[in-house]
Design a protein around this nucleic acid. Structure first.
Lengths: 332, 332
DNA sequence: AACTTTTGCGAAAACCTTTCGCCACACTCT
DNA sequence: AGAGTGTGGCGAAAGGTTTTCGCAAAAGTT
């Protein structure tokens, strides 16, 4: 195939210096006279020397790789727009990493935690961790620095990006402004960090102007889960005049349920969701969603992790305030 | 931090066997008696031994990592929907890799080829390579197996996934059926593999029923590039009654140009594109696009690469036939 | 001139694993 | 009994790099 790789030994020999001097000259680490440094660099250039990354990693114990992994189960990832969320996040993270000499591993949801041990990484970004997240734990037990997107309740991570109420505040304000009096918030039955944040916020939110109640849906069933849960809620409590389902699959299912029950949207019932994916934009009527500004979130969480890996002391960052994208489903 | 990692030396010592025997027992490689094997495995378990991935890679010369990288310049990637294309592709690839014990590195467009040398990978998937693609070359000169999505003209890759006419055939059929007589195909001025495939196909395509002419646009300028190119074409040749721009940014720009010129879509002029992203779906009127079946493409190209890495002899795979998603922009 | 500090470089260890060659032993066949 | 054949296990050698330590020569100081 290729001629035997040219190693640093070859460079040193050709340049007439010792191994260690060559290494120091190339890495700029230690004190080497300018003349020898130049000579070594020139020889390396001429010989086409490329350091063996594996050997470097072996020796230094660092790999300059970080992983992006979601803590949500595969079902939810594929059913809801979480996949889109993840992917939109992945690119800015990958860019930020590359810019800082790191590269990013995209890890699909795994059933087997042991598979995570195979990843040669310095750090990981865990999206939407559960409390005491097993993935984050597994990484950290190995010495991998972990940062989470979404507050990590039990402190399983080294740092996290706080998403606050996750946009629930912004959206509820919007719904209230639009005239809603009783919002049913549809959350996944399976717990994850953002849903918890939502919940925490919601409990403090109900006031005389806006009543907020929580309903639970089976997110792994996708739209169907939203359909079932919202239908039941609408039937049992006619005072509900708005449905807010952060997961877009639940919102889309809820919309269908409302239509099937003869409610018109938005006049009888408003519908809103978080992630602004195709599902929301193309629904009939189009569903109001949030602009989460994922590029900024991605960049910030990447900075957080990279900062930690470079020894800076940081513990928390904040996501930008989401902006409501008002669509037909909430504009009366 | 953590207590010093437990190595295979510790396992061997505790189990009372030699280093090499412990290694063989754990890897199931060579002949070891069942009793010692069991003992070693049990000890490893008890000690919580996890092999040092970096040392393994160093020794074996394999990393079980592949990279996904696009050959298109960063400008086009961000301007056109190529980013969406890439991301939709990335997930099935990452899944397929993980399923086979590999992991996938997502690499943003790089300006500096040397950065690619930092990636510790066994193989790479290069999307939309140019002829004699420098990225593919760089990888292969290092001994990295390369597979491309989109035919690699000059054979810079070890294998490729053939996208045929890239859907141009399907779309032209659709336009002809819809009543088009003269289609202007807007291609990026910058060459890349799919545009070449389109071109090759288009040259053989013009017949008495359907005239096909090619116009060139500056794709790095995004929609504006499409606007300028299409406007000029429409003004200089009034017989054009359809615009087909594989890159969605060009199609969207073209649509705007047509409207500004007072042409109504689809009655005076039809518009179509390849990638079915938000831009196409949300345009006014909505733009007809193709369902490329990216999950299947991703899985196939991953299989191609993984096959090669596992020593199987494969050279080419084919993408599924795209299906037209007919929207208002082409239905009279 | 004698002493101390700085500077440039080399030898060797360490990182942890896999693999190659070899030996000892037990067993089988002539 | 001696030669041949497997089998289980061991020791040592890579694999390529970074880093620590020490030494000697040069430079600086009293």
């Amino acid at each position: 195939m290729t001629e035997g790789q040219v190693t640093i030994v070859d460079v040193a020999a050709t340049a007439g210096v010792s191994l260690s001097t060559a290494s120091k000259a190339l890495n700029g680490r230690d004190r080497v006279s300018q003349s020898t440094r130049d000579r070594v660099v020139r020889v390396a250039q001429e010989l086409g020397y490329r350091p063996n990354v594996r050997a470097q990693r072996m020796r230094t114990g660092r790999s300059s790789v970080v992983a992006l992994v979601t803590a949500l189960p595969a079902q939810i990832v594929s059913e809801a727009a979480h996949l889109g969320f993840l992917l939109e996040l992945s690119f800015p993270i990958a860019e930020q990493c590359l810019r800082n000499g790191y590269s990013m591993l995209l890890v699909p949801p795994v059933s087997d935690l042991a598979a995570l041990d195979q990843l040669d990484i310095d750090g990981a970004i865990v999206v939407d961790p559960r409390a005491d997240d097993p993935i984050a734990d597994r990484f950290r037990s190995r010495g991998v620095t972990v940062v989470t997107v979404g507050k990590d309740g039990a402190g399983a991570a080294d740092a996290y990006l706080d998403r606050g109420a996750g946009g629930a505040d912004v959206m509820l304000d919007h719904l209230a402004d639009a005239g809603a009096r009783h919002v049913a918030v549809a959350l996944s039955r399976q717990p994850y960090s953002l849903a918890d944040s939502h919940l925490a916020y919601l409990e403090s939110r109900s006031d005389e102007h806006l009543r907020v109640s929580v309903i639970r849906a089976d997110a792994s069933a996708g739209e169907e889960g939203g359909y079932v849960a919202v239908r039941e809620a609408l039937v049992s409590d006619p005072s509900i005049d708005a449905v807010y389902a952060p997961l877009d699959a639940l919102a889309a299912g809820g919309l269908r349920a409302a239509v099937d029950l003869g409610r018109t949207v938005p006049d009888d019932l408003m519908v809103a969701t978080n992630y602004d994916g195709r599902r929301a934009a193309l629904a009939q009527p189009a569903i109001t969603a949030l602009d989460l500004n994922l590029p900024v979130i991605g960049t910030r969480v990447a900075d957080l992790l990279l900062g930690l890996l470079n020894g800076r002391q940081v513990a928390v960052a904040h996501s930008p305030t989401p902006v409501v994208i008002a669509r037909a489903s909430t504009s009366r």
